[in-house]
Amino acid sequence: MTRRAVVTGASSGIGQAVVHSLRSCGWDVVGVARRADRLADLDSAVGSRSFAADLTAQADVDALAAHISDTGPLHALVHVAGGARGTDRVEDGDPADWRWMFEANVLSAQAVTAALLPHLRAAIADGGHADTLYVTSTAAQTAYPGGAGYNAAKAGESMLVRALRLELNGEPIRVTEIAPGMVFTEEFTLHRLGGDQAAAEKVYEGVADPLTAADVADVIAYALNAPGHVNLDLVTMRPVAQSAQHLLARGALRPRR
């Protein structure tokens, strides 16, 4: 039986790469994002069947759940949607930015999970397994100056994932967390820095081979395609140049002589 996944954040970056990756290995995919024009282009390119929704709006989440109910079974939720705004110190933080990050990263994860869990359960009523998979960040694991708002939001999402795994114990539903470090995508850092292209490019300047969206998508596809009894609880992945959140090599990587 062909398995079907909902992939959020599908209009760009990691989410878009996941849609490509899953389609290439035979999954049916419903890409979800706010930008309907980008979703239409994605559908034309890879044969996905997308649905435009803002996952911070409950009415849109409900509409997504109704769409899934009307169009077929659901075997996996891949929640990529989220993001960061600003690099302010705690004392200078903009409450609007912090509120948006909590809504985009934590509340959206809760809303879409609650809405789609019944559909995941229905698809496995006669056997098999289902998946919930969440893309968090190494920012959920290690604080850094100027990152407190994003640290807090991603840590909140990570705790949601860990609690969900405990709550679903005894059901054949896997709960996986993928926590990437530095990933170069077209929009994440640009949006975080308010559209400042030069500042965004500076973040990656001189870094040998930061992760790409495709790198993360490959790991996600592996997790979803693993045998049903195998759960990758947490995968932390970084480029070799980033040994820790605070330790980043710039320049070519060379063997020591």
Rank of each mutant, 00 (worst) to 15 (best):
R4F: 02
V7E: 06
S11K: 07
S12T: 15
Q16A: 14
V18N: 03
V18L: 01
H20F: 10
S21R: 14
L22F: 09
C25H: 13
C25Y: 06
V30S: 02
A36W: 03
A40P: 01
S44L: 10
S50G: 12
A52S: 15
A52W: 06
D54H: 11
L55F: 01
D60N: 10
D60Q: 04
V61Q: 02
D62L: 10
L64E: 02
A65P: 00
D70N: 13
D70E: 15
T71R: 01
P73M: 05
L74Y: 00
L74A: 06
H75Y: 00
L77N: 09
V78Q: 05
V78M: 01
A81D: 04
G83I: 12
R85S: 14
T87Y: 09
E91W: 14
D92F: 03
D92K: 12
G93S: 14
D94P: 06
W98D: 09
R99E: 14
F102V: 15
N105R: 07
A109I: 05
Q110A: 10
T113E: 02
T113K: 06
A114P: 01
A114S: 12
P118F: 03
R121A: 00
A122I: 00
G128S: 05
H129T: 02
A130P: 03
T138H: 08
A139Y: 10
A140C: 04
Q141I: 03
P145H: 09
G146Q: 07
G147N: 09
G147H: 12
A148F: 08
A148G: 11
N151K: 09
A152Y: 10
A152F: 08
A152K: 10
A155M: 07
G156F: 07
G156N: 08
S158E: 14
R162H: 10
R165P: 02
L166E: 11
L168H: 00
L168I: 07
N169W: 12
G170F: 09
E171Q: 00
E177P: 12
A179S: 11
A179V: 08
P180R: 12
E187V: 13
T189D: 08
L190G: 03
G194M: 04
G195L: 05
D196Y: 08
Q197F: 04
A199D: 03
E201F: 00
G206D: 01
G206R: 07
A208T: 14
L211F: 08
D218G: 14
V219Q: 15
V219M: 08
A223F: 05
L224I: 15
N225E: 13
N225A: 14
G228V: 02
G228I: 01
N231P: 00
D233H: 13
R238T: 13
R238W: 03
S243F: 09
H246M: 13
L247M: 12
L247R: 11
R250W: 13
G251K: 06
P255C: 06
R256Y: 09
R256H: 11
